[in-house]
Amino acid sequence: MIGHPDKSSAPAAGGSAASPVMSCRTEDPPSVVAEIQELCLASPGRPGPAASHSLSCTLRQGDYHVVVGGGSSGKTRLLEILAGLARPEAGAVRLFGRDTSALRGDDWMEMRRRVGLVFDDGCRLFPQMTVIENVALPVCYHLNQSFEEVRSFVDPLLDWMGITHLRDQIPGRIGRGWRPRIGLARALTTKPELLLLDNPLAGLDPDQTSWWLGLLKSLVRGHAWYGGVPVTVLVTASDPAPWNGSECLFTYLHDVNQDPIEPPARQT
């Protein structure tokens, strides 16, 4: 595994040097959201190729990172560590200036409200709840409001995600292509500053893929949902091709059991 941020993103791909992300970088240094130092991505009890390497990188506000790697390269593990769901075997992670190894109990719970995670494969939606209940749960819990009280807050989000027609259905009856959108809506209710997405484009058709790429770009540039403030987005992918042309930074996690994944052709 090699942790090298590959700045194959070209402003010409979808934006220009005058885009909000780029102008933010040149005029006012954006704040550091996450610092990853010598991070080991091996899972305990599952010695894999990722164990022998480490990852170092820095995520700043408005950064758009795509982490590309094979099946056991440690992509999901990286997201779990950043979301506080797993502890690294070695290395250090600082989120919003705080060393995560020093966070305990409720400190982590507070930190997780600033980090949104969209899981892979079904997005781990709560099967006994309807879509609107799934999406509204975090805001109901954290703001101590009933589902009826947050309806006016959640409805625009469902509309933005294009899932209003699914609001009263349970996740088990919804097509797989829609579930990541529900997972994203659920993650966005608390307006996290760092958004982590685990392979969100897996198995999606071209229309859905295009929708996702457009949405993530709008988040990074500063969407009205966030009051125009750019969000830091970290996405994992097994195939970098769909991201080619996005204003993103690529990081490749090489799995020694597989052939290295080639970076996409640079846009001109």
Partner: peptide
């Protein structure tokens, strides 16, 4: 088993409480 506990934790919800 289905990872809902991790999903709750990721949303900042204490699984023991919820």
């Amino acid at each position: 088993a289905l990872g809902e506990v991790e999903a709750l934790e990721a949303l900042g919800i204490d699984p023991v409480h919820y």
